[in-house]
């Protein structure tokens, strides 16, 4: 018998950064990432306007947009541009934290539910019960109970968006746990923790990431809705939602107070949705081309 035969060990050329390359080739992802990045940079650079967001200057009340006040000013003479930029910090921050928090909590609960059958039924019934409330009503109830603060908004929205995350992660975890590489780990005697965190979670992450970008967008919208209802971020701290809420009384005389934060919300939601669409197209194996 001959010795171990080595077939010519030629490897294909390395395929590095395939994911990033595919993402950047995706048109709506490109538009989305540009929009979101521009908004984020604008929020970070907010202090460059040189004006305090809550500085009241009675002389300058209700100035329409002009070279001096690019987005006009409000009933207290505050500069809307400055407030919109500082508001972006608050709104984007809330969106980001809610997306991360609900995503992480959802992922952990989802993976546990998929791995431990005894845990599964009660948890999923609880999630069903939570999902039977509209998310915004649930959030409204929670902020009302916790008191209107930014932290309450974050907690309320995170709780409201957890069930959807749980479902998504559980569904893909149930598929992944039957795959051969998980079986291989089981044969080798891997612990539940290893199977969950080495194998199932990283491979259930794609759909969750897509979901998180959408939660990011919804949270910005939901914060605006809560602020509009008076239980969101409280003035004088500006958020896109409460700037609009404050401008409501002057909608006919000073349209610019509501319109500019509204544009901010729309652009953020649009950018995040485009980004999420791109991620979904690239990460979802069912949509992959031949």
């Amino acid at each position: 018998m001959t010795d171990v035969v080595i077939a010519a060990p030629i490897l294909a050329p390395r395929k590095r950064f395939q994911l990033i390359r595919r993402l950047l080739a995706h048109r709506s992802f490109r538009i989305g990432i540009v929009l979101v990045t521009v908004l984020a940079i604008a929020a970070i650079l907010a202090p460059l306007t040189g004006i305090e967001p809550s500085a009241m200057r009675v002389r300058f009340r209700f100035r329409p947009p002009s070279p001096e006040f690019l987005m006009g000013s409000d009933n207290f003479g505050r500069d809307i541009l400055t407030r919109v930029l500082y508001g972006a910090r608050v709104s984007l921050w809330i969106g980001l934290v809610v997306a991360l928090l609900s995503g992480i909590v959802g992922a952990v609960i989802g993976v546990f539910a998929a791995q431990f059958r005894a845990f599964d039924a009660p948890v999923m019934r609880l999630m069903d019960a939570m999902m039977s409330f509209p998310a915004i009503l649930l959030a409204l109830g929670i902020t009302a109970a916790l008191g209107p603060r930014m932290e309450s908004v974050i907690i309320a929205l995170s709780v409201a968006y957890v069930p959807a995350g749980v479902r998504i992660v559980r569904a893909s975890a149930l598929v992944v746990r039957e795959l051969d590489y998980v079986q291989a780990a089981r044969i080798a005697g891997a612990s539940n923790a290893r199977i969950m965190f080495h194998h199932i979670l990283p491979n259930s992450f794609g759909p969750l990431l897509v979901h998180m970008t959408f939660v990011f967008a919804y949270s910005i919208l939901a914060e605006a809705a809560l602020s509009f209802l008076g239980v969101g971020v409280q003035p004088p701290t500006p958020s896109w939602g409460n700037i609009i809420a404050e401008g409501r009384d002057f909608a006919t005389e000073a349209w610019w107070i509501m319109v500019f934060p509204g544009i901010g919300i729309s652009l953020a939601a649009l950018g995040l949705n485009l980004l999420g669409d791109g991620l979904r197209d690239v990460l979802d194996p069912r949509l992959k081309g031949a």
């Binding site: 051969d180 590489y181 079986q183 291989a184 080495h198």
Partner: peptide
């Protein structure tokens, strides 16, 4: 395993 694509994480 049969399917070498599913057998590796």
């Amino acid at each position: 395993f049969q399917d070498p694509h599913a057998a590796l994480n």
